[in-house]
Simulated assay, not measured.
Amino acid sequence: MEAFLVSTGIVALAEIGDKTQLLAFLLAAKFRRPLPIVAAILAATLFNHAFAAAIGTWITSLLGPDVLRWVLGISFLAMAVWILIPDKLDDDDARLAKYGVFLTTFIAFFLAEMGDKTQIATVALAAKYHSFFWVVAGTTLGMMLANVPAVYLGDRIAGRMPVTLVHRIAAAIFAVLGVATLMGMGERLGF
C-alpha cells in the first residue's frame, strides 16, 4: 500500500505545471470534449507507466541490492533537482494530428510522457518498491489527479495553482526518498 500512496502523491505533485499538464490544458481548449480527452490520458498513462514500471522491475533483477540502493538514491536526488526546473510545451508536443480527439490525445500524451519526469519516477519507484501493480496504479492515479482538473477546469485553475510551491514539495519528497534510500532506511524499517 505504501508503494501506491507514495507513487500517487509524488506523481500528482510532480505533474503540476509539467508539460503533459500543459498539454491537457491545450487539448481541452482545442477540442472542448473532456470525456474522450480524459479517457485517452488514462489509456496513454497506463500504457506508458506500465512500460516504465516493467523497466524498473527488470532493473532490480540486474543489479545487486547495494548497487540498486545507490542507483535509486541518486536517481531520487536527481529527480528532486529536475522537478524544480520548469517545463515548457514543445512545438512538437503542441502540434495536433487530425485523428480525432481520443487518438490525438493518446498519441500526444504518450509521446510527451516519454522520458518525462513522471515516467522516470515510475521506473525508479517500481525498482524501489518491487511492486509493479501498485506503482502503476499509483502513478496513473497521480497523473489523473493532476490532469483531469486541467481538462475540466482549464483556464479557471491554471493561473491560481501555486506551481512553484507544489514543485518544491515534490522535490522535498524526492530528496527525502533519495536520502532514505541511500541510508538504507527502507531495509531498516522493514520495506
Rank of each mutant, 00 (worst) to 15 (best):
M161Q: 01
A78Q: 04
A14S: 15
I120V: 15
D87E: 12
V71E: 00
G73N: 00
W70I: 10
S75H: 10
D92N: 14
G100A: 03
G64W: 03
A94G: 05
G190H: 03
D116A: 14
L26V: 09
I74V: 13
L89N: 07
F106V: 08
R32W: 07
V6H: 02
Q119Y: 05
L63E: 05
Y152V: 14
E187S: 09
A171W: 09
K19Y: 04
A137V: 11
Y152C: 14
P36D: 01
T105Q: 13
D91K: 14
K128I: 05
F76R: 02
F191Q: 04
W82M: 12
H130V: 05
L62H: 06
V71Q: 05
Y152A: 06
I16V: 15
A94Q: 09
L77E: 04
S131E: 06
V123D: 01
I55W: 07
S7D: 05
F31E: 04
D87M: 09
V166G: 03
V123G: 08
G142Y: 02
V67A: 07
D91H: 08
V6M: 01
F106K: 06
T181E: 14
V11P: 15
E2G: 13
L35Q: 08
T122I: 02
I169T: 11
A172F: 12
P149Y: 03
A39G: 12
E15N: 15
W134C: 03
G154K: 03
V163P: 15
V136I: 05
A12K: 04
T60K: 06
A78R: 00
E187M: 01
G17M: 01
G56F: 06
A175N: 10
Y129V: 14
L22V: 04
M161A: 07
F110R: 06
A14T: 13
K30S: 10
I157V: 11
V166S: 06
Y99L: 14
A171F: 12
A12H: 01
K117E: 09
Y129S: 12
L5M: 09
G186L: 00
A52I: 02
F133Y: 13
G190I: 01
F31I: 06
G190E: 01
A124M: 11
P86W: 01
L13K: 08
F31A: 08
I16Y: 11
F132T: 13
L177D: 10
I37Q: 08
A28F: 05
K30H: 12
V81K: 00
R168P: 06
V101S: 07
G186S: 12
A180K: 12
I120P: 15
V148D: 00
L96M: 13
V6L: 09
A124I: 10
F51A: 12
D87W: 08
D116H: 12
A14G: 14
L13Q: 05
I74K: 00
T164A: 13
W58P: 14
F102G: 12
I10Y: 03
P36E: 02
D18E: 11
